[in-house]
Amino acid sequence: MNKNIVFDSGPVISLTLNNLLWLLKPLKEKCGGEFYISPAIYNELIKKPLSTKKYKFEALQILPFIMDGTLKYHKCQKIEEQTKKLLNIANSCFIAKDSYINIVHKGEMEAIATVLSLGSDTLVIDERTTRLLVECPHSLLEYLQKKLHTNVDIHRDNVKELEKEIGHLKVIRSFELSVAAFELGLLDKYMLKEEEKLDEVDDIRASVLEGVLWAIKLSGCSVTRDDIDCVLGRENKIH
């Protein structure tokens, strides 16, 4: 199993907004692979916010993790070419009112191209459209049709080619990373000792898990309430 992982901007944003960036280092150690970001992701996470007042401080918090190699910046000519190819196919899969619908952005396809270039199979992305495009592009057709209130056609050859190129990839979110961090004991530092217990917190272990999962959801990770309940329910059964 190739353990190199590529991050889209969303999961890094979710972790930053919740002061959980520090998790990247121990997670990387446990994983044994490298964590990568592509140039477009670097641009969104660092360059853009540094040029404005909004989210500048957040960008400055991410920067040390790039400087020390926790998040590696990966760029090569092959990725640029692959990005163009994937972007072209992905944005030519669905047609409405005689126009192809541009459903994805260069940054998202660049992250996927980086996964392919590294021979890896794991992409961490929090947004739903790219995730569905990798896992089940046909389900997007039905969804687009319903939301756009118009007939949407699918370009079957392009979808087939896309499935051939990226259909084997595994997609996880900052949500699953947080569950892993919890199960690895990385969040134990938030668990109060017996003598520190509060009346408001009945089960500190369950509260930490619930707290972190909701924090990730409230920062924009595309995860449903059902998914959170499912993880919490299972944790309750175990303990």
């Binding site: 944003i13 853009k48 989210y55 541009n102 929090d126 459209t129 969804y143 939301k147 756009l148």
Partner: peptide
């Protein structure tokens, strides 16, 4: 409506941070 987050942010000239 099914357009990716980065593309939606680009279209409306807003940052992905704000949108997320």
């Amino acid at each position: 409506h099914g357009i990716s987050l980065a593309r939606a942010a680009e279209l409306f000239n807003i940052s992905q941070w704000e949108l997320m």
